[in-house]
Design a protein around this nucleic acid. Structure first.
Lengths: 173, 173
DNA sequence: TATTGTTATACTCTATAACTATA
DNA sequence: TATAGTTATAGAGTATAACAATA
């Protein structure tokens, strides 16, 4: 058996309140690189060059949102969009050297802030928090593939979708 | 010694990505009660009647933001604003019975979603995540009182603020 | 016809600043 | 003069829908 109702309510409260921490971190970022742009740079660095649709999946936002973030960082020369030889509708996104430099600066700012705020945390506590937050995202993210999984209790008589194709992060249109 | 740079970077990534979880939870909420309104109702239920300034502190947002959330829930009759006998500039915010009913509905939706998504979590894991997220907020929130504490490395020659009065959540004006 | 990506529009949350009323 | 709260304005993030180009 899993946790009780009171614990789920408390977890929901903490999830809601974690925004304050994110805002505090955003304050030490440079004004021309908001969080959406930073996430694009980080994911391209971690996972290497990729297409919009893959990036939207990793960001877990709609592709229209991804498109705007990508345009922002491309305008500043932090990424480039090469033609995709396999599909002329797509382009391959990859970091440029200025993008890598910018990302290094962002990482330094983030690390400094966290080292300051979490100076009395043990290494194990940080590791545990990372582990549990990663698992939390997995537990939610694994259900993104089908519409029926999004709602715990689908309306009676509603057959589960069996499109057969893996859903990308996309407006249902 | 605290965690290393790689762990802080990873924690920052997880904090950035937890927004997807929050969006998933927001999708099961009724359209007339967005997350800001829900937080107002929850905090008034937990901490009892209070003034705007206290609520803004608990929400960890500016009072102007709090004011709008409060107006939203007051327009719908979920809270009432009684005169504050001690200070005629303030009013005391308190939940109404419809507000309590609405909050119970919200809580049920939240609990159902989490019970579904976290069905394979142990009770201890949920408790640990709550504990670490609470501590994270404390580690950041405890530094809100002075401007100097907001930046790990204040500019050289900048004397730390010594206003003497406890700062509330307020635009520095 | 279906898919990749872009753009227009709208909504929520937030902060800053100007303002009113009261202390 | 200082503080509690409100409102106007602006910026960031997101989703939906309509659209273009290509598969």
């Amino acid at each position: 058996m899993a946790a009780g109702q009171a614990q789920f309510e408390e977890l929901a409260r903490q999830l809601s309140a974690v925004g304050a921490v994110k805002r505090d971190m955003a304050r030490v970022m440079p004004p021309d690189c908001p969080s959406g742009s930073a996430a694009v740079l980080l994911l391209l660095d971690r996972h290497g060059a990729m297409r919009m649709s893959r990036l939207a999946e990793l960001l877990a936002v709609d592709m229209s949102v991804t498109s705007r973030h990508v345009a922002h960082v491309a305008d500043r020369g932090w990424i480039e969009r090469s033609p995709d030889p396999a599909d002329r509708r797509s382009r391959i996104l990859h970091l440029t050297q200025p993008g890598r430099d910018r990302l290094e600066d962002l990482s330094r700012r983030t690390t400094e802030l966290l080292a300051d705020r979490l100076s009395d945390w043990s290494d194990d506590e940080v590791v545990q928090l990372i582990r549990l937050m990663t698992r939390l995202r997995t537990s939610f993210g694994d259900c993104r593939s089908t519409a029926s999984a999004r709602l715990p209790h689908p309306a009676p008589g509603t057959a589960p979708q069996t499109t057969g194709t893996a859903q990308t992060t996309r407006t249902p249109a």
